[in-house]
Amino acid sequence: MIYSEKVMDHFTNPRNVGEIENADGIGEVGNAKCGDIMKMYLKIDGNVITDVKFKTFGCGAAVATSSMATELIMGKTIDEALQLTNKAVMEALDGLPAVKVHCSVLAEQAIKSALWNYYEKQGVDPEPIIGKVPDCEDCH
């Protein structure tokens, strides 16, 4: 199993690691038993994601996909972030080994889960906007 240079770059120098105090939306997906947890923090101003940070427990691909996902949604609108697919994350990383595809799914879910939390905080029902966020068991 070989990681692309981009994956290794994002693993060894992950972008946007950390937490956001008073985040507007926090999402956490995965679980320790499966071996990966991603936690995503969003700062949202109007309709725009002005800051994003993450924390990840997981393999090299889990860290790299989290890092890449944060880069891909930074400064984007909520609509754009919701359109981000796991495939786009994978492509941005020059691909992932087949057994690691679920890490990119987790990254997509982490963003959706954070936006879900954002809408809930706003008192808006997230489901019509985001749809269902599948849980960890579905991603494997």
Partner: peptide
């Protein structure tokens, strides 16, 4: 505890 083995190996390899 608290970390995942593959990440650990990649960092040690580094």
């Amino acid at each position: 505890v608290g970390i995942e083995g593959e990440s650990l190996l990649l960092m040690m390899d580094y």
